[in-house]
Every structure is written in structure tokens, then in C-alpha cells.
């Protein structure tokens, strides 16, 4: 039971981080980032390479994940998104373009996976890093380190994003251009830099969540694609217009996925476990139909 709770906390923190990434990019550039799926998978493979090839723990690879994710985000922005924003493409086209980016990234990740298998003879097709986690003793029970690190990373992201968005000049500029791009660019803010920054941070958050989540779930190249609905659900439950709301929304979706299903399982019987993927969908549907402004609507006034 203890292990389940620790796992649930780690998993939901990761979903929260990933949901924040989606919200960040959507708020800044109106783009629903489908490439998020592959970015998460890249994070998983960063953890895999750190463990199997470099002999580190996954935690040593945190800076590397940030670099990889930030890089992927910037490549997506400067390669595709920037030009579409310039041409004022429709939201559907923006979304489709990130789908194209996702497929390209997915293809290359599979090539990498094949390369790892053939050249380094490591099981890169499917991998479970759960057993490689560090166990620490708390009292008389031993718990996984990821159960502590993931919420800590989440908290660090909350604090640093808050400071960044309210105390630094570029952060304030970012908020301004998210709220009103036209006015912001008239007052001399370089929206290009702001958008690039959003993709940088968004990409880094996505791979970060992928790296941490690989310690809870099985890693494979399409793992991000399978989980992306959870991330979107977290973002939408959080309200889609508040980064902190989506951190919270992701936490909620992750917890209900992990703990809610075992609660239901104890009441209704084991057959319900198979329907776990339905939980984030249900959370999303309920939010959209009952409170479309999401969790953020409870504590932030959404301006029209």
C-alpha cells in the first residue's frame, strides 16, 4: 500500500510537470503540442542511456534531460512553429504541424533505439527502470527515491516559474505577450524571443517528466504517445490558461488514475483495472462539461 502511494505521488507529479509543458506552449503560441508525446519518450531514453550506457542513476541525467528537451523545443519552434505563427496559421494547422514534428521525432527515436540494441546490445525496445531506483529507509519502510524527487522537482518548478514570471523582466514580458501579443509587441517586447522561451521551457518540462516517469512505468518509444491523453487531461482539468492550474490538474489526474482505480478495484473487483486509461478521459470530460475554465477557475478570475 505504501509503495502504491509513493508510486502514485511520483506518477502524478510527472503528469503535472508534463501538463504544465502543454499549457506553457499553448498559452504562448496557441499550439497544442502533439510533439509532447515524443519529447516525453526522449526523456525516458535519456534515463535509459544514463543507466545502461553511462552507469549513472537517472537522477544524474536531470540536467541532460533539460538540455535535450530544451533543444527539441527550440528545434520545433525555429524549424516549424515560428513560420506558422508569422503566417497566422489556424490552430488546426498549428496542431497538425506539431503532429508532423512528433512523427519525425518518433521515427528518429526508434532509429536510436534500434541502434542501441544492435550496437550496444542493451534492451532498448522495452525497459523497466523501476528496479534500478534507489531505495531509501524512512523509519522501518523503504521507499523509492522517485517518490521524493518527483514532487521536489514539481515544487522547484512551481517556485522557479513563479519567480521567473513575476520577478524577472523577461518573465513579465512573457506574461504580457501571452495576454495580449499585439499590445506587447507595440510596447517593444520581442515576441519571437518570448515564443522561443516558451518552447524551450515547455520542451525541458516535457523531457523532465519523461525522465522521472520512466522510473514508474515501462519505457518504450511509443510510451509518450500512449500517455499523452493523460497530459492533455491534466492541462485541461487545470484550466488550459494557467500553468499552475495545470500542474495541479496533472497531479489530480495522475492521482485519480493510480489511486482512484485501486479504490474502485477494491469496491467493484479486479476487472476495473484494465480501464485505467479511461480515468483521465473521464476527468477531462467532466471538467469540460461542468467547469470548462478548470481548476484555475476556482482561484483565478479569468478575464474575457
Amino acid at each position: 500500500m505504501m509503495d502504491l502511494i509513493v508510486k502514485a505521488i511520483a506518477y502524478s507529479s510527472c503528469i503535472g510537470i508534463g501538463a504544465a509543458s502543454i499549457t506553457m506552449i499553448y498559452d504562448a503560441t496557441r499550439t497544442f503540442n502533439f510533439a509532447h508525446a515524443s519529447m516525453v519518450s526522449y526523456g525516458m531514453y535519456v534515463a535509459f542511456i544514463a543507466v545502461y550506457l553511462l552507469g549513472f542513476t537517472p537522477y544524474h541525467a536531470l540536467p541532460l534531460a533539460i538540455l535535450v528537451g530544451g533543444g527539441l523545443g527550440l528545434v520545433t519552434y525555429y524549424g516549424v512553429n515560428k513560420w506558422l505563427l508569422k503566417a497566422r496559421a489556424s490552430e488546426t494547422n498549428l496542431m497538425m504541424s506539431t503532429l508532423g514534428v512528433d512523427l519525425v521525432m518518433f521515427g528518429f527515436l526508434n532509429v536510436l533505439s534500434d541502434y542501441l540494441i544492435q550496437v550496444h546490445k542493451v534492451p532498448a525496445k522495452f525497459f523497466v527502470l523501476e528496479t534500478r531506483d534507489i531505495m531509501i529507509q524512512v523509519g522501518d519502510t523503504s521507499i523509492r527515491l522517485v517518490g521524493i524527487v518527483a514532487p521536489l522537482v514539481l515544487a522547484a518548478i512551481v517556485v522557479s516559474l513563479h519567480i521567473f514570471l513575476t520577478r524577472t523582466k523577461i518573465g513579465v514580458a512573457m506574461r504580457a505577450s501571452i495576454e495580449n501579443p499585439a499590445l506587447a509587441s507595440i510596447s517593444g517586447i520581442n515576441t519571437d524571443v518570448v515564443y522561443a522561451l516558451a518552447w524551450l521551457i515547455g520542451g525541458a518540462l516535457a523531457t523532465l517528466s519523461g525522465l522521472l516517469i520512466s522510473l514508474v512505468v515501462t519505457g518504450y518509444t511509443a510510451a509518450g504517445m500512449t500517455m499523452i491523453v493523460s497530459f492533455f487531461a491534466g492541462s485541461i482539468v487545470g484550466g488550459l490558461f494557467s500553468i499552475f492550474g495545470s500542474l495541479l490538474g496533472g497531479l489530480l489526474v495522475g492521482l485519480s488514475e493510480f489511486l482512484g482505480i485501486s479504490l474502485l478495484g477494491s469496491v467493484l473487483g479486479g476487472w476495473i483495472y484494465a480501464y485505467r486509461p479511461a480515468i483521465p478521459l473521464a476527468a477531462m470530460a467532466i471538467t469540460l462539461l461542468l467547469k470548462p475554465e478548470g481548476l484555475a477557475g476556482f482561484f483565478v478570475k479569468v478575464r474575457e
Binding site: L84, L99, G100, V101, L103, V104, M105, G107, V111, D114
Partner: peptide, 21 residues
């Protein structure tokens, strides 16, 4: 030297990007 399965993903992805752009 790339498995054609992945090449297909990369090509379709590029195709979508090129069309949209």
C-alpha cells in the same frame, strides 16, 4: 541503414510539416 518502418514515420512527418509550411 534505417528500418523502413521508421523511415515511413519520418517521411510522413516531414510531408505534413512541408504541406503545412
Amino acid at each position: 541503414g534505417i528500418s523502413p518502418e521508421w523511415l515511413e514515420y519520418i517521411l510522413i512527418g516531414l510531408l505534413i510539416i512541408v504541406i503545412v509550411l
